[in-house]
Design a protein around this nucleic acid. Structure first.
Lengths: 215, 215
DNA sequence: GTCTATATACTGATAGAC
DNA sequence: GTCTATCAGTATATAGAC
């Protein structure tokens, strides 16, 4: 077995743990999630988890980072799209909403992390790790912020306070992590219709023109 | 001391506990909040709390119910307002948003309760109590739902899916519980400007006409 | 790399004093 | 009506076997 393959398997093991942990955190919250519980979901014992992660907080941070990585990856193809910012915004927003639906356990964990950070519910030692993750997420938010400001300059959006507007916009775009649940027989097209409704609602909130005027 | 006064003091003691508990739940979440912690915030010990509430879950339910009571009270003056439903909606929505800001600890607790319910994070015995509280909140949501449907019939709103739209609308109207923080020297008027921005964003999301057309 | 066994700490709830 | 003392259950993290 080559070193490359061995590393790959190690990464797979890590990814499995992150995935199981994300689901547990979503279903039970941070405190109610026990390391034993995550291990049980994996069909293993906690020895396996403590081999890859130093602590529960470290595991949580891993899920948070993985979730944000997914978000950056989702909008990457559209960030440099030429043309009107409002059109670029719509592509990015759509990709973001679909991502919220597709990776809901990770995104719920990210949300919980932000809430915990705002509450200051972190130990002093982990604060620096946490602060970096929050910065990582803030940067992501600022990508959208710049786009909506640009779109306003170009006359396609119309709002007053940028900070509040960006907050409200993300509230709408993120909301599927709270109420989305897959339906039996649901197709990819169904999900995209759903996502489009969410994006349209946010679009309107930004003061965007009605759809028939779009591009 | 008359019985009336004695009852009043007992109610005050209960209200103090609820208020302290709401703040603790907001700042630390459900699990991280200990009964000892709430007692400490009151300058008392947990004996006082257990005299008024059977369990931690019971205390939590008390805060939830109190929060919803406040919401019902806030919109009560506008529910039967004659005239166009869209205008009625705006009054109710504004009152709701201001209420989110004014009673944030209670509203955050309500939010947590809904999340816990959706996760099924309740013991079988407390499930019936919880179910009733969720119903209480759903009824509140339906009050708004009926108004936006009526406003759509009257041609003032324009949206496709009622359920999703109501979800997204509440997401926006509730959002101050996550990002609002009082600023130094903030006046009542400042808060009302803030609330109006939030309401306007939700209004647009519902497909409402631009402000200058609003009577 | 994963498992078993265990130390250590915390907290919800109860019983009974005052 | 509130406080003190205490029990029982649970969960993080570690040490060491395999």
């Amino acid at each position: 077995m080559t070193p490359g393959v061995r590393e790959h398997m190690q990464e797979d093991s890590r990814a499995d743990i992150l995935s199981a942990a994300a689901t547990c955190f979503m279903e039970r919250g941070y405190s109610e999630t026990s390391i034993d519980g995550v291990a049980h979901a994996l069909g293993a014992t906690k020895g396996r988890i403590y081999h890859h992660f130093r602590s529960k907080a470290d595991l949580f941070a891993g899920v948070f980072r993985a979730g944000m990585d997914m978000n950056y990856a989702a909008i990457a193809p559209y960030r440099a799209l030429p043309g009107r910012a409002a059109v670029r915004w719509r592509r990015m927003a759509f990709a973001h909403v679909v991502q919220m639906i597709d990776t809901k356990p990770f995104q719920r964990t990210v949300w919980m992390g932000v809430e915990m950070h705002l509450r200051g519910a972190t130990t002093p030692e982990q604060r620096s790790v946490f602060a970096e993750l929050i910065r990582y997420r803030t940067d992501y938010g600022n990508i959208f912020r710049e786009v909506i400001v640009k779109a306003r300059e170009e006359g396609d959006f119309d709002f007053t306070d940028v900070s509040i507007t960006n907050q409200l916009m993300f509230m709408t775009l993120n909301s599927p992590i709270f109420w989305y649940a897959p339906r039996v027989g649901e197709t990819r097209a169904d999900i995209e219709i759903l996502a489009d409704r969410v994006v349209t609602c946010a679009w309107r909130g930004l003061g965007g023109k009605e759809e028939r005027n779009r591009q």
